[in-house]
């Protein structure tokens, strides 16, 4: 995929792509993202016309539909500011997927331009802003699920770097860490049995490590795993990494609760 080591342009005004999942289900994750970025001195702009990165149709194989959505997204996020996204998957869509489906399109330049400004949240914090340690406090044993769409990008490393640096936090490894959780967007509904089998394996591996919290940079994975955990009456708390970063700041008295 992509492995960019970039620095962010100065100015610290950023555009937030909240992602459709946060727009529909996980408002607190988007909120935490804003609070974390503002703590770092960023001015967060939320372009109101935003919808989705276009990935569902892209992965579903309907590229014409996907391009329609991507064109809208390119329009909505015009400007020079970095676009920060609390999702490795949506970021991969912008960095790589859009470029692939626009290979033969005349407006591929505009799409590539948005790609060049797109950042996954922890990548932006560490590589964009140069923050190497996370302040505050969070007493917990966490399992970090490196979502698959961060393969080949910096985000797996940057997430782990931040988590490991938090006072009180222990990141516990678990078996089969490189394996997909089975979400895969439309895959989870067009291959429900396969997806379920993969999810159950992931949950068994995670639970064997006995973490207090399962975290990830992608709500898609956590929604899928969480749905299985709840359906089978298991106990496993799921928290997005933005929420962990925000809560650490709160626990350390660095921002208000």
């Amino acid at each position: 995929m992509v492995n960019l080591k970039r620095k962010s342009p100065p100015g610290k005004k950023i555009q937030l792509m909240a992602t459709c999942l946060c727009d529909a289900f996980f408002d607190d994750v988007a909120k935490a993202t804003v609070e974390v970025l503002e703590y770092l001195g960023c001015e967060v702009i939320f372009p109101d016309g935003q919808t989705c990165c276009g990935q569902p149709a892209f992965n579903g194989g309907d590229w014409a539909s996907s391009r329609k959505v991507v064109r809208h997204t390119v329009e909505v996020f015009r400007g020079e500011e970095p676009v920060v996204i609390p999702s490795g998957s949506c970021t991969a869509m912008l960095l790589h997927g859009t470029v692939l489906e626009f290979e033969k399109e005349t407006d591929r330049k505009q799409v590539a331009e948005l790609a060049s400004r797109s950042w996954e949240l922890t990548d932006y914090i560490v590589n964009g802003l140069g923050i190497n340690e996370w302040p505050g406090k969070f007493d917990a044993k966490v399992a970090f699920h490196r979502s698959c769409h961060t393969r080949g990008s910096c985000s797996g490393e940057t997430s782990l770097q931040l988590l490991n640096s938090i006072d009180g936090m222990t990141v516990v490894p678990f078996g089969g860490g490189e394996q997909c959780c089975g979400f895969g967007g439309t895959f989870s509904v067009s291959f429900p049995n396969t997806s379920e089998g993969m999810g159950k394996l992931k949950i068994a591996n995670v639970m064997e490590a006995q973490p207090d919290i399962l975290t990830s940079g992608d709500m898609g994975c956590l929604m899928h795993l969480g749905g299985l955990v709840d359906r089978h009456n298991k106990e496993l708390q799921r928290v997005h990494i933005a929420q962990i970063l925000r809560d650490a700041l709160q626990n350390g008295g660095l921002i208000e609760k």
Binding site: M1, N59, G61, C148, H149, R151, G152, E178, Q179, C180, G182, F183, G184, G185, F187, S188, S190, F191, T194, S195, M198
Partner: peptide, 9 residues
Amino acid sequence: PKASSLCGA
């Protein structure tokens, strides 16, 4: 080709 979560492994 649909039988993949596109995990990239």
